[in-house]
Computed example of a mutant assay.
Amino acid sequence: MNIYDFEVCTLEGEAVRLDSYRGKVLLIVNVASRCGFTPQYAGLEALYRRHRDDGLVVLAFPCNQFGGQEPGSEAEIRQFCSSRYQVSFPLFAKIEVNGEHTHPLYAYLKSAQPGLLGSEAIKWNFTKFLVGRNGEVLRRYAPNTSPESIEPDLLPLLAERSGG
């Protein structure tokens, strides 16, 4: 099993196989529109715009498991992200990242890169996972890690050419 074995749904309900991102560097983030970290949308969008032509894709998964900070419908989430942060990276349907109904993608991400002291639980919104061009889950970042501070880890991965 690897990252490319999973299927997710867009905000519009369209099924997407992660295999369609093969050869890209992925930054996978659980997001929320009413969180103290919500302004990170701006940093994520800036990273995406700066490096998308080099192969970076940010994949955002809204989650309402932390303080009910993503209560909106898919349409409301799309509207918020577009109007407030001009988000152009892929946004997916709301998922659960912990507990009995954890999305299989997040179960995989958490087992591949456990958090502090080996805990697999996602602690809050805006936890980030960095995935290399070959689909390997390379790093996990805490919610308070700014997108800008991840850029030095991205650059060597983006310099690698797909398939290399």
Rank of each mutant, 00 (worst) to 15 (best):
F92M: 12
A93E: 15
C81D: 04
N30H: 10
P90W: 00
L109T: 02
A46E: 14
N64W: 14
W124E: 11
G36M: 02
G68V: 09
G67K: 07
V87S: 02
I77V: 13
P62G: 14
G43A: 01
P62S: 15
N125T: 12
G118A: 04
A93F: 09
V57H: 11
P71T: 07
K94T: 13
T38L: 10
G68T: 07
F80D: 00
Q40F: 13
L47W: 08
T38M: 07
L47H: 08
L56R: 07
Q113P: 07
R50L: 07
T127A: 14
A32E: 02
H101P: 10
Y85L: 01
A121P: 01
V29D: 08
S73R: 11
I28T: 00
E70N: 14
V31N: 08
V97F: 01
P114D: 04
A107V: 07
F92C: 03
A75P: 09
E120S: 09
G72Q: 11
E120P: 07
Y85V: 02
S83C: 04
L59V: 08
N64R: 11
Y106S: 03
G115V: 06
Y41I: 12
T38N: 08
S88P: 00
A112S: 15
I77D: 08
A121G: 00
A107H: 08
I122V: 15
P71W: 03
S111K: 13
Q113R: 15
N125S: 06
E100N: 10
P39F: 06
N98C: 14
T38P: 08
G55P: 09
G118V: 06
F126N: 13
K123D: 00
A32Y: 05
F129T: 15
Q40N: 10
S83W: 02
F89P: 00
L44H: 09
L109K: 02
L56P: 14
V29M: 02
L91I: 05
Y41V: 11
I95F: 04
I122L: 06
F61R: 07
I122Q: 08
Y48N: 02
R78Q: 09
G67S: 03
I122F: 03
V57M: 07
E100D: 12
G72R: 10
K123E: 11
P114R: 05
C63W: 14
L47Y: 11
L105M: 10
N98Y: 07
T127C: 13
L117Y: 12
A60C: 06
H101V: 05
A60E: 14
A60Q: 13
A107N: 07
S119A: 14
L91W: 03
E120Y: 02
E74C: 15
L91M: 14
P114A: 02
L109G: 04
D54L: 02
A46M: 05
R78E: 08
L59C: 12
Y48P: 02
L26W: 05
A121K: 13
W124Q: 07
H51W: 12
E70F: 14
G55K: 10
L44K: 10
K128Y: 06
V25C: 01
G115Y: 03
G118H: 11
Q86S: 04
V97T: 13
C81N: 02
R84N: 14
R84F: 09
S73I: 14
C63Q: 12
Y106R: 03
E76P: 11
A112P: 06
E100F: 10
A107C: 02
S33Y: 10
S111D: 02
